[in-house]
């Protein structure tokens, strides 16, 4: 229960922000907080609180897995790499061959996101493959 107290501000904020399917579970000295945030701002806010309660996330006592809800109607995603091109691969994994690339800020088609980490995308050139989801931002 001590961990739930430590991160109470975080879980309260998650509930207040409308995080759905919110689950807070403590197991073997680690607190697991899962849920689906209504938007990216809500997720960022929770991570800011996490950073405040446990600076730099160094304690290793929280696994915060809050996904951002994505409207099923979203079909376009923007490439948000730092500056390089985004690799598009044959399968979901960095061990998979690269079948194409998308430039930073390019808007490409989202085919499906059945895999949380790797989304299936298609470029304007018709290249289809898997890209790392963290570098893709849904277009409204």
């Amino acid at each position: 229960m001590a961990l739930q107290d430590k991160y109470k501000e975080l879980t309260d904020a998650a509930a207040a922000a409308g995080v759905s399917d919110l689950q807070v579970r403590e197991q073997e000295g680690v607190l697991y907080v899962d849920g689906i945030a209504p938007n990216g701002a809500a997720k960022d806010q929770l991570w800011a609180i996490y950073d405040k309660l446990d600076p730099n996330f160094l304690s290793g006592d929280l696994v915060l897995d809050v996904k951002v809800a994505i409207d099923a109607a979203v079909t376009k995603v923007k490439v948000i790499t730092e500056n390089s091109n985004l690799n598009i691969r044959k399968g979901p994994g960095t061990d998979q061959p690269i079948v194409g690339k998308a430039a930073k800020n390019e808007v490409i088609t989202l085919v499906n996101q059945s895999n949380d980490q790797w989304w299936l995308v298609r470029t304007e050139d018709g290249e289809e493959g898997y890209a790392y989801a963290q570098y893709l931002s849904p277009e409204a």
């Binding site: 996330f57 160094l58 006592d61 696994v63």
Partner: peptide
């Protein structure tokens, strides 16, 4: 770097690990 660390920790927490031990990581 701090900004990248937040991104990385978010990506790692999404993988359903038992825990992420960053005690040996310099931020």
């Amino acid at each position: 770097e701090k900004a990248k660390w937040i991104k990385l920790k978010q990506a790692l927490d999404a993988l359903s690990p038992k825990k992420v031990d960053a005690a040996g990581l310099k931020i």
